[in-house]
């Protein structure tokens, strides 16, 4: 395994100097090759963002009978944004999303790291076990949601196993109890995405130079000391990448959750994506949805830029 954290100046391959016509050919072809991707990116970013910004300043709804470009007729300036600031349901959905993230991502990380540690050296059956353990992340999330919907039925296998373990009949209504429903949803997320942590962390783990580990052993470090002083520092970048991926993806959590609980009971499992979905399809106030969406995009962009700056600064400090 090699690590290649691309930095800005590595993005482009250094081009060998050649004559001017050849340079022209290269530039032309490069432009043409990247054009379709540029168009697609522009198509999904620039225009939609402007449209979203525009609509977010109005009360426009698909039911309002005018085309979206006439939304100015329903101009409300920043009313949507002030509403949003006081929308309790939005803030609690955001809070819930963060709670789910703060539980799921660390648990996935620790389980994934523990599994990766077990897989660091060779043993009989390794390849087969590895393939099986990766399976959950390849299951269609909606299907995974349905699996856990079945498992957590009150007459379902989870209660059956608990009955067997505890010795008395258990009939917990997992998905209709507000607290348990959130737990069930998190369990499903952990089931599906621990393998991703495992996969990435294992790739990082096998990349830790073996002779440095041996050197540490020869210098008297025990397994735990080796792990803390050599393995973890060497895997720092990979750990950050793995956590970042899961934080980003977990923030979007929708498919599994929506199929298991539909955001319910009540709003007990309503996360940001579910909330937006409901406002979009049930309340149909798209002007307001646009405001929510835009606010999230802005916050995420700022967070992303800050995170990237921080990482770049770290890299520089390390240099």
């Amino acid at each position: 395994m090699t690590m290649a954290v691309a930095s800005e100046n590595e993005m482009s391959a250094p081009a060998p100097k050649s004559s001017a016509p050849a340079q022209d050919e290269r530039a032309r072809l490069g432009f043409r090759l990247t054009l379709p991707a540029q168009i697609l990116v522009l198509f999904i970013s620039a225009f939609p963002l402007l449209m979203q910004a525009y609509i977010s300043l109005t009360d426009w709804s698909p039911l309002s009978g005018t085309n979206w470009w006439n939304a100015w007729e329903m101009w409300n300036t920043f009313a949507n944004y002030t509403d949003l600031a006081m929308d309790g349901r939005f803030w609690s959905a955001l809070w819930r999303t963060l709670v789910v993230m703060l539980v799921c991502v660390p648990v996935e990380f620790l389980l994934g790291l523990a599994l990766a540690t077990l897989f660091a050296d060779d043993f009989p059956g390794k390849k087969l076990f590895y393939s099986i353990l990766l399976m959950p992340m390849m299951v269609v999330p909606a299907v995974a949601g349905y699996m856990f919907f079945m498992l957590f039925q009150s007459g379902g296998p989870v209660n059956d196993v608990l009955s067997g373990l505890l010795g008395f009949p258990v009939a917990i209504a997992w998905l209709s109890d507000p607290k348990l429903a959130l737990a069930a949803v998190m369990i499903a997320d952990i089931w599906q995405w621990t393998p991703l942590m495992f996969l990435i962390l294992l790739a990082g783990l096998v990349g830790v130079p073996q002779d440095q580990i041996k050197a540490a052993t020869l210098l008297g470090a025990n397994a735990w000391q080796r792990f803390v002083t050599i393995v973890v520092p060497k895997m720092k970048t990979i750990i950050i990448i793995a956590l970042a991926i899961r934080v980003i993806e977990n923030f979007k959590i929708f498919d599994t959750l929506y199929i298991m609980t539909g955001g319910g009971p009540g709003v007990a499992t309503e996360t940001i994506s579910v909330y937006i979905y409901k406002v979009t399809t049930q309340d149909l106030i798209w002007g307001y949805v646009a405001a929510i969406a835009l606010a999230i995009l802005v916050v995420l962009s700022v967070a992303a830029v800050l995170a990237m700056k921080r990482m770049a600064a770290n890299r520089e400090a390390a240099a």
């Binding site: 130079p209 002779d211 440095q212 041996k214 050197a215 540490a216 002083t229 050599i230 520092p233 060497k234 720092k236």
Partner: peptide
């Protein structure tokens, strides 16, 4: 070690 196995992160 042949390549010294210095702890490069330290």
């Amino acid at each position: 070690f042949q390549n010294y196995a210095i702890f490069t992160h330290m």
